[in-house]
Amino acid sequence: MSLSPDAVAAAFLAACRAELDAAKPGNVHRHAGGHGMTADTFEAAAAATAPWIARPDLRVGARILAATRASWDAVGLNANLGIVLLCAPLAAAAERPASGRSLRQAVTAVLATLDQQDTRDAFAAIALATPGGLGEAGEHDVRSPPTIGLVAAMCLAADRDLVARQYAGGFREIFEIGLPAIAAAQAAGQDDPETGAALAAYLAFAVAFPDSHIQRKFGLAEAESVRRRMAALADDLSRTPDRDERLAMALRLDAELKHKGRNPGTSADLTVASLFARNLAEAQRE
């Protein structure tokens, strides 16, 4: 079934809060802020963003721009651009009548409708948020008038940015990495908010790919070094059933990465989108 704006907004806020509950090494969470931000920063950004993400009368690009402006007005910095870019198409997909289609199929249909106006609005949002590197693509830089649709524009950045890759690949990593990691953690009874399903999704992305945010700021070698540290943590956690010990492990790596200024922000964005997709799919089944 199609979801109401209230249901979409609730699913979005629940995803944002679950991601903040998770002790994500290097990224902001309720146990520790970092990089000039706290959990309250992201709570405020999510609250400002949710109504715009869930606006069925707006196209995807318009939602992205309005949500980014609202977030910026609320917290004065780029707190959730990647989240907004990922969640706007998912929200639009959930609002469509299901007619036997899965959420993934609906996302594919939404992506096929994106045009130059969506590109124009998304580019304006990216330029406002100034994420550093994202959107710099020669003749199709975000500061230039777009001449192509949003999916085509994202394809130009897909080799260096995992958020852009979702548009280029039909949100493949969300549906084939994030959602399975969440489901596996739930099936294993890992329901602790700090080290359960949300952390499992975060680590799944952080282990599968050198984080785009770290790569843009510090280069591929450093991003790969962080990826290896995440893989070692994931391996240790897989052999550790005790909740307190699991949390301590995650927080040790968290402190190490924050001391070095390393933030796997793209992995966190993908985690929110995966949790949002899970929430939307569950709401559609109710």
Rank of each mutant, 00 (worst) to 15 (best):
Q117L: 14
S99H: 13
G133S: 04
A67H: 04
R104W: 07
V110I: 08
G135L: 04
P97L: 09
T130R: 07
A98Q: 14
G133D: 01
A124S: 13
A98G: 11
I83A: 06
D73A: 15
A109V: 11
L85T: 04
A74K: 12
A92H: 03
Q116E: 15
L85F: 02
A124Q: 07
A124K: 05
D115N: 14
A137V: 14
L81D: 01
I126C: 03
S99W: 07
A124N: 11
L81N: 00
V84S: 01
A70H: 09
A129E: 00
V75Q: 10
G135W: 01
D73L: 13
P89R: 03
V110N: 01
T119L: 13
S99D: 15
L134Y: 02
L86A: 05
R120W: 14
R69C: 13
V110S: 02
S102V: 11
A125W: 00
A125S: 07
A66R: 15
I83C: 07
V75N: 13
S99T: 13
L90I: 11
A129W: 00
D121M: 11
L86K: 01
G132V: 03
G76N: 12
A93E: 10
A88N: 03
G132H: 03
W72K: 08
Q117D: 15
N80C: 09
I83M: 08
D73K: 14
V110P: 02
P89V: 07
A88L: 08
R101G: 11
T113H: 04
L90V: 09
G76F: 09
I126R: 02
D73E: 15
V84P: 01
L134S: 04
G132P: 00
L111K: 03
Q105C: 06
F123V: 09
V84Y: 01
G132L: 02
R101E: 13
N78C: 02
E95M: 13
R104F: 04
L134W: 00
N78T: 00
A127K: 04
L90G: 02
A67Y: 05
L111A: 05
I83N: 06
P131E: 01
R96K: 10
T108I: 10
E136I: 10
G132C: 05
A109N: 06
C87M: 06
A106Y: 05
P97A: 11
D121V: 09
A127H: 10
I126E: 01
I83G: 05
D121A: 12
A67C: 09
W72G: 06
A79T: 03
R101H: 14
F123L: 12
Q116P: 06
A70R: 06
E95G: 09
L81P: 00
L114W: 04
A91P: 04
P97H: 10
Q117A: 15
L77D: 03
Q116W: 11
D121P: 12
R69G: 14
L134E: 00
V107E: 04
D73Q: 15
A112E: 14
L134D: 03
I126D: 00
D118K: 08
T113Q: 05
S102I: 11
P89Y: 04
A94T: 11
